[in-house]
């Protein structure tokens, strides 16, 4: 096993060394990543400067929701976010090099460009979580601690699967890579807000097609013991791992179909 993982360890190690080689550049990018998180939190902040409740959540609950969604998304973005560069690989023909090596293409792609700067956004999410948790009135139990951890991990897995689905679509779209952004970044955006504010068809879309509601909204409801809106009972907050497994199945199947569809750009 250790022997099989060695190539990935080497690839990752070289990535980490090269990204941190230029200290000042790296710090700037880290700050940029924090700034993106701040940008998104500003929207929540400005909304709650005007209203007391959005959906069934007050500012503290919305901050908790934001924190879980942001940590989950930034972790997924850190590990697989760069697969949305695949149209460039397809156009330049660099994917062929991956295909020639005796390792799975997806695993190579993931380890080829881990972006450590995205930890900046994770850090912001953790900071918001640290402030939001004590502000919320949560009846703590071991189960709820477990829920918080599992939900965050499952959320990251859901976003990661969305990234892979989007990347798989690129084998057919190439020029239209931005289509896929609607589901990855759009899903991330939708996950930061209570799904109850959406009209029913949109709520279903962001719960069961692009499962953004399972990342943070439903777990937040379960943590705070708030009953969900019609169609989304709070106990679904425990089903994040199931959803993550299902969507990873879809992601891997479409990825395989995509790689098989790929015929190379010639030379």
């Amino acid at each position: 096993m250790a022997e099989r993982l060695r190539p990935y360890r080497v690839l990752l190690g070289s990535q980490i060394r090269s990204q941190t080689a230029y200290r000042r550049s790296f710090v700037m990018e880290l700050l940029g990543s924090v700034a993106i998180g701040v940008l998104e939190f500003t929207e929540v902040y400005v909304i709650f400067a005007n209203v007391e409740f959005l959906g069934e959540l007050d500012f503290a609950a919305a901050a908790l929701l934001f924190a879980i969604a942001n940590i989950a998304f930034s972790l997924a973005d850190l590990v697989v976010g760069h697969v949305d560069r695949i149209p460039i690989y397809l156009r330049m023909g660099t994917l062929d090099a991956f295909l020639l090596r005796p390792l799975p293409v997806l695993a190579q792609l993931i380890t080829s460009d881990i972006s450590l700067r995205r930890l900046g956004r994770t850090a912001l999410g953790v900071a918001v979580l640290a402030v939001a948790l004590p502000l919320n009135d949560i009846a703590w139990s071991p189960a709820k601690v477990l829920l918080l951890v599992v939900a965050t991990a499952a959320g990251a897995a859901i976003f990661a699967a969305l990234f892979v689905c989007a990347a798989a679509l690129q084998f057919w779209l190439v020029e239209g890579s931005e289509f896929a952004n609607s589901f990855t970044y759009g899903g991330a955006y939708a996950s930061q807000y209570p799904a109850s504010i959406f009209a029913l068809p949109v709520r279903v879309l962001f719960a069961f097609v692009v499962p953004a509601a399972f990342v943070a909204y439903l777990p937040t409801l379960a943590l705070l013991d708030i009953p969900g809106p019609p169609g989304l009972p709070a106990w679904l907050g425990w089903c994040g791992p199931l959803m993550a497994t299902a969507i990873w199945g879809v992601a891997l199947l479409s990825w395989r179909a995509g790689v098989r569809h790929y015929t190379g750009t010639g030379s």
Binding site: I47, S182, G186, Y189, A190, P194, F198, V202
Partner: peptide, 19 residues
Amino acid sequence: AGAFTNTVFGLIKAYITVG
């Protein structure tokens, strides 16, 4: 593709605003 993405985000944003 750009127009499609702008529209999906518009949908989310419009509901947040209206909410």
